[in-house]
């Protein structure tokens, strides 16, 4: 069985995490390291994918700066999204050639991990056709946006655990005018690290790999 290094990083600045992903993806492409799953949370930040529409960002730079929200245009799929404290963010760095060589299956797999994780907390989450992500009663609880280069994945998902949903007012999440929700909003109090552990277990099962916990400081 392939092994996948699991690293729970805690709160990491977006730019730093981006650099970390880039390095891990480059090493993965070069075959220097095994697959990785980074789990972390970000300080307040808004990111826009390559195909994003700036009109889905509702606040001016000034307002964002004043609200202490960072802003990054990046190379993942998907539109505008928000990350912040209380949100479980996962960046799997996987070589899909060693799994199914199928981006559709990969995205469905990520959704399944999230759905199964939420089910453990008694939340019945599911998919909406053509709208990638995980939904609970028409509200988005987790967003997905992936970048692929030579079949190596980066970026990933963001699951609202106890996210302050009011920050989503600055954006039209993923360009959709659908509401967002969180585990907390659905009445589930959960600790980010614990949700991460449960997610990692499902991830190992669905992506058919053995999760190896790597305790390490973030390389600066």
């Amino acid at each position: 069985m392939r092994s996948c290094c699991l690293r729970q990083l805690g709160r990491v600045d977006y730019g730093r995490a981006l650099e970390l992903q880039r390095r891990a993806a480059a090493d993965r492409k070069a075959g220097l390291v095994p697959d990785h799953l980074f789990l972390l949370e970000h300080p307040h930040v808004i990111t826009v994918g390559r195909n994003g529409h700036m009109e889905n960002l509702l606040a001016s730079d000034e307002v964002l700066a004043r609200a202490g929200i960072g802003f990054y245009p990046i190379d993942r799929g998907g539109d505008v999204t928000y990350h912040g404290p209380g949100q479980l963010v996962g960046y799997p760095i996987l070589d899909l050639r060693e799994w199914k060589r199928d981006v559709g299956a990969y995205v469905r797999g990520l959704e399944q991990c999230l759905i199964d994780t939420l089910a453990e907390y008694g939340i019945a989450a599911g998919r909406i056709e053509k709208l990638t992500g995980v939904w609970v009663d028409g509200r988005k609880i987790a967003a997905i946006g992936v970048h692929l280069s030579r079949w190596v994945t980066s970026h990933g998902f963001a699951l609202n655990v106890s996210t302050d949903l009011s920050y989503f007012r600055y954006i039209v999440p993923c360009g959709l005018t659908k509401p967002v929700t969180s585990m907390a909003a659905l009445g589930v109090r959960a600790n980010l690290e614990e949700v991460g552990e449960r997610f990692a277990a499902h991830f190992g099962r669905i992506f058919d790999c053995e999760m190896e916990i790597v305790e390490s400081e973030i390389p600066v």
Binding site: N51, V103, G104, Y106, V107, T132
Partner: peptide, 14 residues
């Protein structure tokens, strides 16, 4: 060398 980028289902690929 990366030549173009495509997008399928929330996945951007070089």
């Amino acid at each position: 060398e990366p030549l173009f980028e495509i997008s399928t289902d929330k996945v951007d690929t070089e």
